[in-house]
């Protein structure tokens, strides 16, 4: 027991040490990331002057929110099919399609989607140009799998008699889904949305393949800057990331803990 606790401490140190260093050195005056000279916030100003970064960020934000919305819809449908529908023709293929993207290396997903887009363009003239739309399609495709994992596990835990009770009380299948199932699995759908959002915001490899000229997402901009060497501007950006995520995750954790007894119960509490 003691050993595992020590490992846990070590593991957390390993996970957080690089981030802490990253944050500290974002306030370093010097361009050298490893030598501390004096406190400064100048890299933050530099960051906001960088139009490429800002544009990349805005594009990524747009793609990520649209991706999250679409993959939540498809992912919830897929979960419902997998958990509730039982066997149907093509079910094995379907379940494979919803799980495989979880582990498929990005380079394969990216390249194959690009070739699809190029091939389709030759065959049916769509998509004539690659950019935000093709990135969105690619992101939705792999995010569906992640949303499905999150939502289907919640759906499976849900007491099935709740849906039967609603049906027994006169609600048809569609009503049952929207009035009973959906509200009960809503927390999972929300975390699925957040997961898809961050995955999309995070993706470099797939976006690089399926993007076209002029559409550079934030990771693509960061990547080209990082390739040129270490830059404190990236540290500043990372710090902003970390702060945003700290705030939002603490908030959502607090919310989840506050409301979970009422929204997560199965009615079996005695």
């Amino acid at each position: 027991m003691k050993l595992t606790k020590i490992m846990l401490g070590f593991g957390f140190a390993f996970l957080y040490f690089p981030l802490v260093i990253l944050v500290i050195y974002s306030f370093n005056e010097s361009r050298l990331v490893t030598v501390w000279s004096e406190f400064s916030v100048k890299w933050y100003f530099e960051l906001f002057k960088d139009e490429q970064l800002i544009n990349g960020f805005l594009l990524s934000l747009r793609i990520a929110s649209l991706t999250a919305c679409a993959s939540v819809v498809f992912g919830t449908m897929a979960s419902y099919i997998l958990v509730k529908f039982g066997r149907f023709p093509g079910q094995t293929i379907f379940s494979g399609l919803t799980v495989a993207p979880l582990v498929m290396p990005d380079v394969i997903t990216g390249l194959s989607l690009l070739l699809l887009f190029v091939g389709l363009n030759e065959l049916i003239g769509w998509p004539s140009a690659r950019g935000a739309t093709t990135i969105w399609i690619a992101h939705v495709t792999f995010c569906i799998a992640f949303v499905t994992v999150v939502v289907s596990s919640r759906l499976r835990e849900m007491d099935g008699s709740l849906e039967e009770a609603a049906m027994d009380l006169g609600a048809g299948p569609v009503k049952v889904f929207f009035y009973i199932t959906l509200p009960i699995i809503m927390p999972a759908i929300m975390s699925g949305w957040l997961l898809a959002f961050t995955l999309s915001l995070d993706d470099l490899v797939i976006a690089s393949f399926v993007s076209g000229p002029g559409a550079s997402t934030l990771p693509m901009v960061i990547y080209s800057s990082v390739r040129l060497g270490v830059s404190p501007k990236i540290n500043a950006l990372a710090t902003i990331f970390v702060v945003c995520i700290l705030i939002s995750s603490t908030a959502s954790w607090w919310l989840a803990n506050r409301f979970s007894p009422a929204s997560g119960g199965t009615g079996k509490t005695t």
């Binding site: 008699s161 709740l162 009770a165 609603a166 006169g170 009973i180 509200p183 009960i184 997560g264 079996k268």
Partner: peptide
């Protein structure tokens, strides 16, 4: 189908909708 039958059931687990108040639960039918 179950939703058109004049038959109502009290479930073993009670199956009370956890996201609704007592009032809303009863008003659902």
């Amino acid at each position: 189908p179950p939703f058109h039958r004049h038959v109502n059931m009290m479930f073993q687990s009670y199956a009370l909708f956890p996201h609704m108040t007592v009032e809303k639960n009863i008003a659902f039918g």
